[in-house]
Write a protein that binds this DNA or RNA. Structure first.
Lengths: 256, 256
DNA sequence: TACTGTGAAAGAATTCACAGCC
DNA sequence: GGCTGTGAATTCTTTCACAGTA
């Protein structure tokens, strides 16, 4: 995973801070959903949406887990973080579940997205139908290149990056997507942050430094490729290694 | 991450297998590195490469950790998984470290990459300079559209997807990148797998079903956006703040 | 002195396994 | 009988804190 989730999350669960009498609250609870579970909820949501389209009305944890590629205990635990909406002996009502996951993920409101950097990737993102259809309308595009200013991409005219603060404020951008070359990314990030954007999706291969209250997630192709490379290498080593009754050269168990 | 990592990894580390006297070798090491650490090693590598370019020769765990956005204890532990290459009282030699991380990540060999699906994203990927420069030459491109066959994209002519098996074998593709529409992704994946590709990077918003021995990582924009949405919502809730005895804004029960 | 390397402790996430309900 | 929801057990990850060393 690959997310850049700084240790500086700003909002951190504080197990038991004496003194600060937290009015046992939303904060706690919302935050009580483990990060890992949130990511999976989004996956369940997609699978469930597919089910709705197919006319499926009810689904068991086993089935849903299979379709989502996780094990069923994990799925049930994940769902239990958001409440108890299943029926014992029966399963979950697909539409009900969709509704609750959407609510928890905050998808009941629209989140306007700004894409910064209209190169190859920026174009692809601006044209990516998956954003608007899922409640993430692309509200603004930015680039440094003055020649691009005013040119519509995916139906939206590109703004010059110098206007980022005003435009983001006007259009109530809540999520910024950085698709610039790496050299520009930190500066762009700083501008987004000073424009009030608190959630950033970063495609540039750099580690962004942000204040604690800003949430950054990153999508880093090089890192993903290198992780795969690691696995390729591991495989090669295994193949090379003699394996005697299921136990590799060094006690690594190959097939239990 | 958000990585699709099958629970079936086939190879499992068993802490202490009696009998097999481990000649503490690479394989042992390789698999002993936690998945989470592997992802970070790739990040350290990039930061370090930047350092090399700037002429930095030595770096402390504190500095490197700062630049990579992690804490220094974690960094040292991560590096300790690959060996002890630092000097107490001094720090790490940047080039030495680069060398060792590259070795561990399997970057000493080239990994030929095939991109399937030459739409917006596929184009962006085929033209993405970061792949080849980092040891991942794009070796093949595929698409269903016969009109694209033979058209060069990023310098490489597109092949028809029906030729995937032969072309992948010929060009020794070790990593497949799926950038097709979701409907096509599973079929493409199956073809890649039967062509012998064991590592897949999936951009399509679907959960791929693969045999245990295949490693899949996924990059899922919708999921990333939704995770950010969750955080936007959490922030809003916090800001709104008021919680009346355990019941949040929209009826979320915060504390029973 | 200034830093690494690492056991041991703490904290998260995952999985087990079963009580409880339909 | 079949399936959910969840404490308890387990495994994985992070952090602490300090011994060890150039």
């Amino acid at each position: 995973m690959a997310a850049q989730r700084g240790e500086g999350d700003g909002v951190v669960t504080r197990p038991g801070v004496a003194g600060a009498e937290a009015p046992a609250d939303v904060r706690e609870r919302a935050r009580a959903i483990p990060e890992a579970a949130v990511a999976r909820l989004a996956v369940y949501l997609r699978v469930l949406s597919g089910m709705v389209e197919q006319g499926v009305t009810t689904i068991s944890s086993e089935e849903l887990a299979g379709a989502a590629g996780v094990n069923s205990a994990k799925l049930r635990k994940d769902l239990s973080y958001i409440g108890s909406y299943g029926t014992r002996g029966v399963g979950y009502d697909v539409e009900v579940l969709v509704g609750h996951i959407e609510r928890i993920l905050g998808l009941t409101r629209k989140h306007s997205v700004a894409v910064v950097g209209i190169g190859n990737l920026g174009h692809a993102l601006a044209n990516y139908g998956g954003f608007p259809s899922r409640g993430f309308p692309v509200g603004a595009l930015f680039d440094v290149d003055p020649d691009l200013t005013g040119v519509p991409v995916g139906g939206i005219p590109v703004n010059h990056i110098d206007d980022i603060t005003t435009v983001c404020a006007e259009r109530e951008v809540s999520i910024g997507v950085i698709a610039t070359p790496p050299q520009a990314a930190q500066a762009v990030c700083d501008r987004l942050v000073s424009a009030g954007v608190q959630c950033i999706l970063n495609f540039a291969p750099v580690v962004l430094q942000v204040p604690d209250y800003v949430e950054v997630r990153k999508v880093d192709l090089a890192v993903e490729m290198q992780i795969l490379s690691f696995h390729v290498a591991r495989r090669a080593d295994e193949a090379a290694g003699d394996v005697v009754n299921g136990i590799g050269v060094d006690g690594v168990v190959i097939r239990p």
